[in-house]
Write a protein that binds this DNA or RNA. Sequence first.
DNA 1: TAAATTTACTTGCATTTTGCAAGTGACAGC
DNA 2: GCTGTCACTTGCAAAATGCAAGTAAATTTA
Lengths: 138, 138
Amino acid sequence: MKKTAKRSECPVSSSLDIFGDKWSLLIMRDMIFYNKSTFGDFLKSEEKIATNILTSRLLNLEEHNIIEKLEHPDSKAKMLYKLTEKGIDLLPVIVEIQLWANKYLTLPDSIKAIIEEGKKDKEGFIKTLTNQLKQGIK
Amino acid sequence: MKKTAKRSECPVSSSLDIFGDKWSLLIMRDMIFYNKSTFGDFLKSEEKIATNILTSRLLNLEEHNIIEKLEHPDSKAKMLYKLTEKGIDLLPVIVEIQLWANKYLTLPDSIKAIIEEGKKDKEGFIKTLTNQLKQGIK
DNA sequence: TAAATTTACTTGCATTTTGCAAGTGACAGC
DNA sequence: GCTGTCACTTGCAAAATGCAAGTAAATTTA
């Protein structure tokens, strides 16, 4: 992705300039909900992102300090992608998208059940998961 | 925008298939926060959307029942674009994006002040605005 | 220890989406 | 009836995405 100019000073517009594409939030989802952390992990996702797109999205997220790229402790061949606090704080956005989807889209029952569960205590769910993830970055 | 296949059953992915582009949520923002309702209104926004893109985005939102296209009461030359309940219920997503932007991006003080204000009673703010907007669709 | 596999990419090319400028045709205001 | 507004459409250029193949270092396996 080429660096495109900020379109306006609007918070929504500026945010979409950063992660408003079809892939960035899916990478965030993978990191937040499935603990994925390597290039290969992300490639395995159901949505089948192309390698060049994944590279450009990871770079973009890194440039915006939403993720960090680190040496992998297990192997020099791997890189470890880790959420920053800024990235973890996108969780509420993702949760609201899930709740909207649950209300209006046709989803598999198994997924609906999970969302319904989290909905019972939305704030608590977000807080708990956020704290868990923030433990991991200390 | 051509109709592209759903990438997966994931709620986040399915939602992004619908409104995960750089313009759709800005149109929603204009309808929710600035009461915009005509083609010309949307064109006037700071971000300067092109007419052909606006046409395709409005069509897409209409196809997904997020907005409705109606005769304008003032003039036969105009169309009136109106949020549906499904569209209004995207407000929490937009609010969370604004809160994230407020925390992590550089925004004009005037905008920051408004967001800070809404943050004090987020749930109340969302509920009140949602009810107001839903009044308008009865 | 040589061969195969994994990992994180890059490159090239086709397709799709976006952006820009210039229409168009119905309607409205004077 | 002339001019401007409104909601588009069209054509073309530029950018982003998608796909397949290749690469080079590191690791595993035979």
